[in-house]
Amino acid sequence: MQKRIILEAVGIRKDYGALQVLKGVDFRVREGELVSIIGPSGSGKSSMLRCCNLLERPTAGQIVFDGIDITREGVNINHVRQNIGMVFQQFNLYPHLTVLGNVTLALRCVKKLSRAEASEIGMAALAQVDMAGKRDAYPNQLSGGQKQRVGIARAVALHPQIILFDEPTSALDPELVSSVLGVMRKLREAGMTMLVVTHEMGFAKEVSDRVIFMDGGVVAANDTPERIFAAQDNERMQSFLSRFLNEK
């Protein structure tokens, strides 16, 4: 039996004025899956991801999360977002708060937990990303890899049903990438559902359940990593992949 669908994009279109960034995107993410979105720059990957929690409003189409169309009028998006975590390319940690403060802010002012309860959950999330020792540090005292692990802990602490990753390692020095990918692998083993926009082809190939290849605002291919990376029939994907694999 197939697992239930957590997130489904149905005919998503996004225009910025005359520019069509997304031209009708459909895909599904099932419970416990890790789905990678790959594709050349400007293919609409990040825009698509940002539509999933309505940081961008799609021009047309639906985002169905846990059986509910969240693009409908009258849906409480703040409530929905507590169940959709997000990790950003530029980390976007709050520089005026400590590591623990970053992780517990939403627990305290969205979930209205007490300081003690929030700290307990926050510390558990930090332990998951190996950052418990830095609880009292400020973001500018951390390396890029450590910042991103805190970013992941901030998302994990809310116990979301899915986490969206927007190029989580693209802003990192090469030697710091592996620690972040390691944390993501651990999360996947723990059963977290994840949708990951990435340029890390090795990661996408090894860890994904499925890979979505986007090009020119549409899904050009959506398949298992084995088939995607072995595909000979899609010329654009071939040229995209060969560029990446040659770089490695």
Partner: peptide
């Protein structure tokens, strides 16, 4: 401030 600060906060469900 970077726009990302507001987005990060909103992504955790904050109003």
């Amino acid at each position: 401030l970077a726009q990302g600060q507001m987005e990060a906060a909103r992504s955790t469900g904050m109003t």
